[in-house]
Design a protein around this nucleic acid. Structure first.
Lengths: 218, 218
DNA sequence: GCTGAAAATATTGTATACAAAAAACTTGAC
DNA sequence: GTCAAGTTTTTTGTATACAATATTTTCAGC
């Protein structure tokens, strides 16, 4: 339970930005939000600062703060960066992962597999997320883990879009197993490559989706 | 020129934290800072929020915000992460770098070399920084570049410590040249490895420094 | 009807006032 | 002297008031 209202408001606003409650360029009106949340402008302003700091909004002095959804180009850049960071985590994890963690990854993959077969998309996403979080952690670098989690979270609302491709889920599962195999073998290069491609393909699918949407709009 | 006093204050406070004007755990007293900067508590509070957001300070609700200098473990983690990110930038840059940028790297290295020979440490650091910034940029990924710059800046005050080793500067220069060579050849793997090791060695030197300081204190 | 200057309005940034919680101090029992 | 309960003081978090700047509206002149 958070003690500062500003934090709760910031969480709520972040969630709204993530789930598309605001559109790119929307001004976050202090007075409106203040009445909406039943507080004064002060905690609203502090919450907005937090959004600005995490890159979810942009502040133009004396003008206000505006929500800033990443455009296609920035999204591609973020996916590419995520792929590279995952690769790095894989590289380090291959050298440092524990037997217990390898076992956990096997379990997660089993649950993941079951979710795919049962058509449980939510379950798939939950287990998929756990898979990646375990790898971040096993990289054995708290700072890197934190950065990976941050970007992973930022991309979460967009990652869902790429499940539309037929057969992507089962392909993804196969990739997961190849990743665990490389980690178990302690093969840094292979683990890095497998993870990087596993994530990069999401960016490519996303790219395809963007262009299909664009051409559909013409 | 920034329009909000809160921003100027945040810059000043960041600088103070970076340059060691505060120690780990120091409480950033709102009232004291307010009188010190000749403003009310409001802009001070906004500035403190920015410090907290960038990880330079920690906020404990109803207690205050405290500066948070990274300890030896976290520093090592940050250096390792920097090394990996530099490796990634090198990998991507090898595929994307322009001829003009390659030429610029040659020029930077020449200036850098001259600085080493002339014993101009400040000059060396300035050119060294430019070298790395060019590579970040040539990775062709604005988001990644931004992250790399952020971490580079965060580590800046600690990077200086590793210049104490005899011969490190000339060794570093040789590494720079090997990096440019790999980039020119478009050899991603070699560029990544060269850059990663180039930065990782700083972390190791730093580690040695830390333990030597520790053993000296016993 | 359109343009542009000036007034009116709205909105951000800062200061101050107040409420609530934590820290520091006092005092009394042992 | 030590400890602890109660009180005072300090400090944070929030609300409100005010100042400065942007934006919108009004209205004269063409």
């Amino acid at each position: 339970m958070e003690l500062r209202r500003a934090d709760k408001i910031a969480d709520a606003l972040e969630e709204l930005v993530f789930t598309g409650g605001f559109h790119d360029g929307d001004r976050l009106d202090e007075l409106r939000l203040a009445t909406q949340f039943n507080v004064s402008r002060t905690p609203i302003r502090e919450a907005l600062q937090r959004l600005v700091a995490s890159g979810l909004a942009e502040q133009i002095p004396r003008r206000g703060v505006f929500v800033r959804q990443p455009g296609p180009v920035e999204l591609m850049e973020m996916f590419e960066t995520m792929a590279e960071i995952e690769g790095v985590c894989g590289r380090l994890a291959a050298m440092r992962i524990s037997d217990a963690a390898l076992e956990e990854l096997d379990n997660v993959n089993a649950s993941c597999c079951a979710a795919v077969e049962g058509g449980d998309t939510d379950g798939y996403y939950r287990e998929n997320e756990r898979f990646h979080h375990v790898i971040y952690h096993q990289a054995g670098n708290g700072f890197l883990e934190h950065e990976a989690l941050r970007l992973h979270r930022r991309l979460k609302p967009f990652r869902r879009l790429q499940l539309r491709w037929r057969g992507r889920l089962s392909q993804s599962m196969a990739e997961h197993e190849a990743i665990v195999e490389a980690l178990r073998a302690g093969d840094s290069a292979r683990a890095a490559e497998a993870l990087r491609n596993h994530v990069a393909i999401q960016g490519e699918k996303f790219h395809l989706l963007m262009s299909s949407l664009r051409s559909a709009a013409e």
